[in-house]
Computed example of a mutant assay.
Amino acid sequence: MISADELNKAEEGDLKSIEQICKATWEPLYRFIYFKVQNREEAEDITQETYVKVLTYLRGHKVPRENFPGFMKTIALNLLRDRWRQKKRRGIPINFEELNPEETASMDHQKAITQRLQIEGALAKLNKDQRAILDLRIIKGYSVAETAKLTGKTEATVRTSQYRALQALARILDVHD
């Protein structure tokens, strides 16, 4: 546990207090970060960055005494989110010189055909009512009320049938949440 006295001294720049705080918080902070990233090198980097941010913040601000470890975890989470956003923005590196547009388009087209055939095969395994409900609701875009009128069923029955049909379709296609 970190005392308020140690935090006060650390805010004033006392190196022994800073060292004590680091010794007391390093392992739980590292484990918390490692649990999130599942990579030793990245966890070490983020842990170091967290300490740099915390120590920089200590010099100019008062930090929460009652939950200092939580404060550190919040900073670590913010660093993690920043990294994830940067990775997301960067995307997948592509070597444009090796890229063949015709081949890529052909692969996408083949994948689309394969998916369509799988879905058509799965739909064929549904019963007639389920296929009709999915056709009207999803493929043709009719409302629940319109589908009920067209099929002669109640709106509740249409909703239930649609739900069950989608569940059956997911089982057939082996789709997991």
Rank of each mutant, 00 (worst) to 15 (best):
N39F: 04
R40D: 14
R40H: 13
E41N: 12
E41G: 13
A43I: 13
E44F: 11
E44G: 15
E44V: 15
D45G: 10
I46P: 08
I46C: 09
I46G: 04
I46V: 15
T47A: 13
T47R: 03
T47H: 04
Q48W: 03
Q48G: 10
Q48N: 09
Q48P: 09
E49A: 12
E49W: 02
E49V: 03
T50P: 12
T50S: 09
Y51E: 01
V52E: 01
V52Y: 00
L55H: 07
L55W: 07
L55V: 15
L55Q: 10
T56F: 10
Y57D: 12
Y57G: 14
Y57I: 14
L58Q: 04
L58R: 08
L58S: 05
R59Y: 02
G60D: 07
G60Q: 09
H61W: 11
V63C: 08
R65A: 10
E66K: 15
E66H: 13
N67C: 13
N67F: 10
F68H: 08
F68E: 07
P69D: 00
P69E: 00
P69Y: 01
G70W: 03
F71I: 13
F71T: 05
F71Y: 15
M72A: 09
K73D: 00
T74H: 05
T74K: 09
T74Q: 06
A76T: 02
A76F: 08
L77M: 13
N78K: 15
N78I: 12
L79A: 06
L79Q: 04
L80H: 01
L80A: 04
L80F: 03
L80N: 01
R81E: 02
R81N: 03
R81F: 01
R83W: 00
W84S: 10
R85F: 01
R85D: 05
Q86K: 13
Q86I: 15
K88F: 06
K88W: 06
R89S: 03
R89H: 00
R89M: 04
R90S: 07
G91Q: 05
G91L: 08
G91K: 06
I92S: 05
I94A: 07
N95Y: 07
N95L: 13
N95C: 14
F96Q: 12
E97H: 08
E97W: 04
E98R: 04
E98Q: 05
E98C: 05
L99H: 04
L99I: 09
L99M: 11
N100C: 10
E102L: 12
E103K: 03
E103N: 00
T104P: 01
T104W: 08
S106W: 04
S106Q: 08
M107C: 12
M107E: 11
M107P: 09
H109E: 06
